[in-house]
Design a protein around this nucleic acid. Structure first.
Lengths: 349, 349
DNA sequence: ATTTTTTCCGTGTTCGTTCACGAAATTAAA
DNA sequence: TTTAATTTCGTGAACGAACACGGAAAAAAT
C-alpha cells in the first residue's frame, strides 16, 4: 500500500509545508516563483500521482457531464443502449463527484438538435458527450464548446472538422466494407445488389455516407461482376418497390441487399411481403431487426456494442478531466456480426 | 455529494458510537446481541452502502488476486493479450489495495498446470483468476479452492463441473456455429470441408471440442450436401497432408477449412505451399495469423477480445470481493469476425 | 521609524472509515 | 462486599488530499 509518494513527501523534500505544495499542484498562486519552481521540479522528479481516493473524499467539488443524443422512441429503441452504458458509468463514478445532465433531440429534426445544444451550453457543464447526428448543427456546437474550452467527446460517429478530445465509434467505412465482403461471399457471380439509405436528411448523416463508401470501395477494388444499385428512401419500405419499378427492375432479380442503418427491417419486411429472399445485411440489434433475423429474413446485423460505447466514453471523459490522463483519440469499437445463430449469446459485457 | 448515509448516521440513530457500528459491520464481535440486532436493523432499513473511497483509504488491508494462465511464448503470443488487460485493471485498482501474484504454466504440459496450481494455493490469495486449460487438473484445483473457500473466476473458457463465481469467455459452441455458417456462405454446394484440431491433449481441451460441436451442429441442422471431414494433428501442418493421403484425398478437393484454435496458421501455411486456396477460418489475432490474413490466405479470424476478457475478469473479482456485489455468472464476450479488410481498425477498447 | 498593504506560507479541520486502545459496565470469583 | 475477570462500548488517531484561515515576513506607504 505504501510506496506511493504523497504531498507530504514532496513537502518534506522541498522543505515547505503541505499547503504550499497543494497551492502549486492546483496552480492557485500565492507562491513565490523560486519555491514554486523547486516544488514543481520535485513533483516531476518523483512523478507524483495524486491519490484519487483521498482527493475525491476531501473535495466537495462536483463534476458535471452533459450528454446530447437522440431520444429513443418506440420505433427506434437503439439509443436506449448507449444510455444504459452511460448510466452505468456515471453510477460507478458518482463516488468521485461525477454528476450528469442529459439532453435528447429528435433524430429526424435538426432544429431539435440545435435547441437542445443551446440548453446544454446554458448548463455550462465540465465536459460533454455528443452523438453528432446532425452534421452541420454538431459542427456549430463544437465551435461553441471550443470557445468555452469545454472538452467534448463523440459517440457513435465522429466529425473530422472538429476538435473533440476523442470519439468512440465503429469505423463506418470498414463496417460497410465488411458488409460488402459478406454479401460478396453469399451471392452468386454477376448478381444485382442493392444499397439502401433510409434517412430524412442524408447529407447531414455523414456516417451513413461513409458506410456506403466502404461498401462501394470493396466492389471497386474487387472489380467483380456484380451490379450495385443505390436507392435512397426516407420512410416506408414500399418506396423501395416504387423506385425499382421506376427503374424497370423486377424485385426478384435482387440477390443482395445492404441497408446502411438500423432501418433495415423496413427493407426486409418489404421483401418478405413479396416473398423474395435476397441476402440482407443491416445494422443494430433493435427489436424489429432481431425478430426478422430470427425468422431468417435478415442474414447479418452489424452491431457495435452501443452500451459499451456509452460506458467507455464517460470513462474517457473522467480520465481526461479528473485523472488528467492523455487519452486515445480514436476509439474504434469492434464490428460485431450478429446472425440468427449467435444472437442469443450476444451480451455486451 | 451529500445525501449518502454514513456510519455516523447509523450510530446517531442507534444511540451508539461509530466504533460499535463498525464492529457489527465487520462482524468482529464484542457487541451485545441486543445492540447488534438494533444496529443491524437500522443498517438494513437505511440500506447503508459503505463509501469505498473512505474505506480503502483508511484500511491498510491489501487484497491479493492470483492468476493462473498459460505463458505466452514466441510461437504463441496469444496469452500476452489477457495479460495486458489484467495489468491494466490491477493498475486501476491498486489504489484500493489490490495486488496481484501471477503463475504461468506450459500450455502443452498438464503437469506444469498442476505444479503452478500448487504454488498458487500456497500463496493463499484472496481470489483467483484461472484459464482452465487442462480440464482434469483445473477441476482438481477448483476443488481445493472450494475447500479453502477462495472465490475463483474463469477466463477464456469455463468448466461445467465446478463452482466458479463466474466466467468471462466466448461461447465456444456458438463461435463454431458461426464459423460453419460463414464457410457455408463461402463455398459452393456439395463441397469438401475440413475441420482441424491442432492440440497435444485434445480430450483435455474442452472448448476445442465445443467449437467442433457448434460447427457440426450447424451442418446437421442445415442438412446440406457438404462433406465434413475431421482431422486431428498435434504439431506441424504437414500432418494434414499425410492424413489426407492416408484417406486417399487430394488436397485440391478441399474447398473450406476450419481450425478450432489459433494454430490455423499451420494449416494455412500448408495449403499455401501447395498453392491450393480453400476458404479458411480460424481463431485469434496472433502475428502469424495476421500475416496470413493480410495475404489473403486466411479469410476470417474469429476473435474474442482477450484483453477485455482479462480486464473484465479482474473487475468482476473486485466487485465480488470488495464491493460485495452479486455478479453475473455468464459473461460472454462478443464473437468478432476479423478479415483482411477490417483488421487495421480492430483495437479493443 | 512606524503603519499599512501585499506577498507568501504554515496550521488545523474536514471527508467517511478503520482500528488500536482503553474506560465503563457487567459478571464472576474471592 | 470487595476484587478480579470479562464483556461491551466510546474515543481518538490515522489514511491522503483540499481548503479556509490567519500569521509572519517583506514591500510599500506614511
Amino acid at each position: 500500500m505504501r510506496k506511493n509518494i504523497r504531498i507530504k513527501d514532496i513537502a518534506l523534500k522541498a522543505g515547505v509545508s503541505i499547503g504550499t505544495v497543494d497551492r502549486v499542484l492546483h496552480k492557485r498562486g500565492e507562491v513565490s516563483e523560486d519555491t514554486k519552481q523547486k516544488i514543481q521540479q520535485i513533483i516531476d522528479e518523483l512523478d507524483y500521482k495524486p491519490n484519487l481516493l483521498a482527493s475525491s473524499l476531501a473535495s466537495k467539488k462536483i463534476i458535471v457531464f452533459a450528454t446530447l443524443m437522440p431520444k429513443a422512441s418506440n420505433q427506434d429503441t437503439y439509443w436506449s443502449k448507449p444510455q444504459l452504458g452511460i448510466e452505468k458509468a456515471v453510477n460507478q463514478l458518482k463516488a468521485y463527484g461525477v454528476r450528469i445532465q442529459q439532453f435528447f433531440f429528435d433524430m429526424d429534426d435538426s432544429m431539435s438538435f440545435s435547441a437542445q445544444a443551446g440548453k446544454l451550453l446554458d448548463a455550462n457543464p465540465d465536459a460533454v458527450l455528443i452523438a453528432p447526428w446532425a452534421k452541420r448543427e454538431a459542427i456549430r456546437l463544437s465551435g461553441k464548446l471550443d470557445e468555452k474550452s469545454i472538452p467534448y467527446i463523440y459517440i457513435d460517429a465522429t466529425l473530422e472538422e472538429t476538435n473533440p478530445i476523442g470519439f468512440v465509434a465503429q469505423s463506418p467505412s470498414d463496417s460497410g466494407y465488411l458488409a460488402a465482403k459478406l454479401i460478396d461471399w453469399g451471392v452468386k457471380e454477376s448478381s444485382l445488389i442493392l444499397l439502401i439509405h433510409v434517412a430524412k436528411e442524408l447529407d447531414n448523416a455523414s456516417h451513413l455516407i461513409q458506410r456506403e463508401g466502404g461498401f462501394m470501395r470493396y466492389f471497386e477494388e474487387k472489380k467483380n461482376s456484380h451490379k450495385i444499385l443505390k436507392i435512397e428512401i426516407s420512410e416506408g419500405g414500399e418506396e423501395i418497390i416504387s423506385q425499382l419499378q421506376k427503374l424497370g427492375i423486377d424485385p426478384c432479380e435482387v440477390s443482395g441487399l445492404f441497408v446502411t442503418n438500423s432501418k433495415v427491417h423496413l427493407a426486409a419486411d418489404c421483401f418478405k411481403s413479396l416473398c423474395v429472399t435476397p441476402k440482407i445485411i443491416g445494422y443494430d440489434l433493435i427489436p424489429q431487426n432481431i425478430k426478422l433475423l430470427k425468422e431468417g429474413k435478415i442474414d447479418f446485423l452489424i452491431c457495435q456494442k452501443p452500451e459499451l460505447q456509452g460506458f467507455h466514453a464517460i470513462h474517457l471523459l473522467f480520465d481526461f478531466l479528473v485523472k488528467k490522463d492523455t487519452i486515445k483519440k480514436e476509439n474504434f469499437t469492434s464490428i460485431d456480426l450478429i446472425t440468427k445463430e449467435n444472437i442469443d449469446f450476444y451480451n455486451s459485457i
